[in-house]
């Protein structure tokens, strides 16, 4: 469903991504991990065209992301994304956050959009928060709303950019639970995260990145049992110790 072929990205002379290639099949859950600055966030932002890349090719459901003729807005409307800092729109209520893109992008009627939003709020366990402003919610609640907002668009796949790393520890699980459920329901997901417990539980594959390269791209089991590269071993031992 998503394929990356030899994707490279530069800031001036500095290479942020180097020859990254991988395939994600429908229904697959991929966890991307690696030290900070390794390019993992940049990589998934390339998938929905938020970050431009200079070389290679990314195809999402048959559409080439890098092609100038591609209507990026239409593509992004079908690819859900969840951000590290939630990025709910602070001047809109939770309900408005859920409705805005449905009406303005998909052209749904407001009542229809509201009904959809309510249904998804229920799914993330926040049906009673619809009329609050994001600032009145906890971080964990905001992130669940952000997931619901992305799901309102009926995405064909979901991208998560460190969805729990800005959260207080006691709120991480409420977000992970929603994501686990989503994975079990068959959503195609690419998740940048350091939550290795989550990776073990639902990911089919783990991609390990370092210095803009995909160093490992392996079945979850074998990645954790015997990481091939020294850097991945080092990374794992550090992260599992914390």
């Amino acid at each position: 469903m998503i394929s990356l072929r030899n994707v490279s990205k530069y800031y001036g002379d500095f290479r942020v991504l180097a020859d990254c290639s991988t395939e994600v099949r429908k229904g697959e859950v991929i966890v991307v991990c690696g030290p900070s600055g390794s390019g993992k966030s940049t990589l998934i932002k390339c998938v929905n065209g938020l970050e431009p890349f200079q070389r290679g090719e990314i195809i999402v459901d048959g559409v080439s992301v890098g092609d100038r003729k591609t209507n990026l807005s239409r593509l992004r409307a079908r690819v859900g994304m969840v951000f590290q800092h939630f990025e709910l729109f602070p001047h809109m209520t939770v309900a408005e956050n859920l409705v805005i893109a449905q009406t303005k992008v998909l052209g749904r009627r407001r009542e229809e959009a509201l009904a959809k939003g309510t249904k998804l709020l229920e799914r993330v366990g926040l049906e009673d928060q619809a009329d609050k402003y994001p600032g009145a919610l906890s971080g964990g609640q905001q992130q669940r709303v952000a997931i619901a907002r992305a799901l309102c668009m009926d995405p064909i796949c979901m991208l998560f950019d460190e969805p729990t790393s800005a959260l207080d520890p006691e709120m991480i699980n409420e977000v992970l639970d929603v994501m686990v459920q989503l994975a079990k329901d068959g959503m195609t997901m690419i998740v940048v995260t350091h939550e290795m417990g989550f990776a073990r539980k639902v990911a089919q594959r783990v991609i390990f990145m370092d210095h803009g390269r995909i160093v490992e791209d392996d079945q979850t089991e074998s990645f954790f049992r015997s990481p091939r590269s020294a850097r991945a071993r080092q990374f794992l031992s550090k992260i599992l110790r914390d």
Binding site: N48, L50, S73, R74, R76, A77, E87
Partner: peptide, 10 residues
């Protein structure tokens, strides 16, 4: 904020 809005297809 800009990224989130664009990611929603706006």
């Amino acid at each position: 904020q800009r990224a989130a809005a664009l990611a929603l297809g706006l």
